[in-house]
Design a protein around this nucleic acid. Structure first.
Lengths: 227, 227
DNA sequence: ATACATACGCGTAATATTTACGCAAATATA
DNA sequence: TATATTTGCGTAAATATTACGCGTATGTAT
C-alpha cells in the first residue's frame, strides 16, 4: 500500500500507431481488452506508467508488451484528463503517436489480439479513445507539413503514385499527378532506385527511396514540406 | 491519507504565459517560489491538480490564484515526466501556454510576486522549467503559422510596424516593411481604425484592429498565415 | 521658421512558384 | 494487334514573392 496526504490520479500511457497500405488506407493498431472495464472492446495499446520510469519509456514498454512492436520514434501529442474518463478511479493518460511500416508489425500474432483497423472502420473504442483518435488524426494532418510522414508510413521502396495516394488519404484532398511529382522531385528527397517492381496495373511506375540525409539538411534550415 | 495498491505520481499544471511589448519584446510571466524546493527561485505559475477537476480547470485555477489573471484560452502543449524532476516525490506536470495582452495582467500586485521577464533575460528557473520554456517557444514558432498569435499579443489597436516587430521577434527574422504590409493587407485580417495615435517617433503610422470574423472564415477553409 | 534625418505608405519591375493540362510512351487485357 | 489505362515529360498562364525607388509626414536641431 502506498499512502499520500492528498489523492493522486493514476497515470497511463496510450499509443496511437498509424500504418498505411494501398488497400486499407490509413490504419491504426488496436488491442482487444481482456478485462473490465470495457472488456472485449478495442483500445489503443497502453497501460499504467511505473513510478520509476518516464512516460516515454512506459509507452514503449506497454507497446512492446501488448503488440510485440518496438517503435523507432514516438511523439507525445496530448494528455487526457477528463475526471470521469475511467470508471474505476481517477486516471489521466498521456497519449503518443507513431508512424510505422505496416509490414513491420505482425498484428494478431503472439501478443493478445493486436489488429489493424482502417481509420474509416474503427469500432467504438474503450474509455475516451475515440476522442484521442480524433485528436491524433488532427495532429497527423498538421505534422505532414513539417515531417516526412509519408516516407515513414510507406515501405522503404515506393512509387510516386503510392506516395501521392498516401498524402491524399491523410489530407483528404486530391492533387494533380504531374504537379505532385515535380514538386516532390524538386525537394530532392527522392532517390530513384533504378529498379522497377513486378507490379500489377498498367504502366509500371518508377520506384524511389527516401533521402534521409537530404531531409536532415533541409530540416536544419527550417523548411516546410508544402502540400 | 489516501491509499493505493500501486504508487501514483502527483500531477501538477504549469502555465507559460506569453506577453509582448515593444520595449521588452516577448516576455513570460513568472512567480517567485515562497517555499522549498527551489525557494525564492522563479517558476511558471502552477500547482497540484485537484482530484475532482480536469487539468484545464486546474491550470486556470492556479493561474488565477497565483497571478490574479483569468486567461481566455490556454492550450496544452506537453507533459513533462522525467523521474527526478521534483526532489520531493514523483511529480509529472501538464504544461499550458497562453498569449495575453500584457496590459491585462498587473504583475507584482496582490498575488505573490508575479513579474514579467523578457524571454532573453529569464533567470534560471525552478524544476525543469527552463526546458518547459524552450519547448513552449518552439511551439509558439510553429503556431504562428496557424494562429493569429500576433493579434492576441498586441493591444486591440496596433500599427503595422508593431505587428511586424512582433513577428520578427518571435520568428527571429527580418522582413521588408513594404512586403510585410502588403501581404498582411491582402489577408484581409486588418481593419483600419481611422484614428492616429499620439505616438512618439517620426511619422505616425496608421492603426488597425484585428478582424476576428474574417479570421474565423479563413480558418474554416483551412488556410495558413504564411510568414 | 527652416533644414534635416528618419520612418511611413504606395507602387512597380524582375523573378519564382503554382496551377492546369496537352501529349507521347508503356503495359495489361481483350 | 487493338484498346483502355497509367506513367512521365513538358509548357503556358496565372499567381505570389522579392527587391527596392520615391514622395510624404513628422520630430529634432539650428
Amino acid at each position: 500500500m502506498y499512502n499520500y496526504k492528498y489523492p493522486h490520479p493514476a497515470v497511463t500511457t496510450d499509443c496511437v500507431i498509424f500504418g498505411y497500405d494501398i488497400r486499407e488506407g490509413l490504419s491504426v493498431l488496436l488491442v482487444q481488452r481482456g478485462i473490465d472495464p470495457f472488456k472485449s472492446r478495442w483500445a489503443f495499446p497502453g497501460g499504467f506508467m511505473k513510478i520509476d520510469e518516464d512516460a516515454d519509456t512506459g509507452a514503449r514498454r506497454e507497446l512492446m508488451e501488448e503488440t510485440g512492436f518496438e517503435a523507432e520514434s514516438i511523439s507525445q501529442f496530448g494528455t487526457f484528463t477528463a475526471v470521469d474518463r475511467d470508471p474505476r478511479e481517477r486516471v489521466i493518460t498521456i497519449a503518443y503517436m507513431a508512424l510505422v511500416r505496416k509490414g513491420s508489425v505482425q498484428g494478431g500474432d503472439d501478443a493478445a489480439d493486436a489488429r489493424w483497423f482502417p481509420v474509416s472502420a474503427v469500432p467504438p473504442l474503450a474509455f475516451d479513445h475515440d476522442r484521442i483518435l480524433r485528436i491524433a488524426l488532427e495532429r497527423l494532418k498538421e505534422q505532414i507539413h513539417f515531417r516526412p510522414v509519408g516516407f515513414e508510413l510507406l515501405p522503404e521502396v515506393f512509387t510516386l503514385p503510392q506516395l501521392q495516394a498516401l498524402y491524399e488519404a491523410i489530407l483528404g484532398v486530391r492533387f494533380d499527378r504531374r504537379n505532385f511529382a515535380s514538386k516532390m522531385q524538386k525537394l530532392g528527397l527522392l532517390v530513384p532506385t533504378g529498379e522497377r517492381p513486378a507490379d500489377a496495373a498498367r504502366r509500371i511506375p518508377q520506384t524511389y527511396r527516401f533521402n534521409a540525409q537530404k531531409y536532415d539538411e533541409l530540416k536544419q534550415s527550417g523548411f516546410r514540406l508544402e502540400f
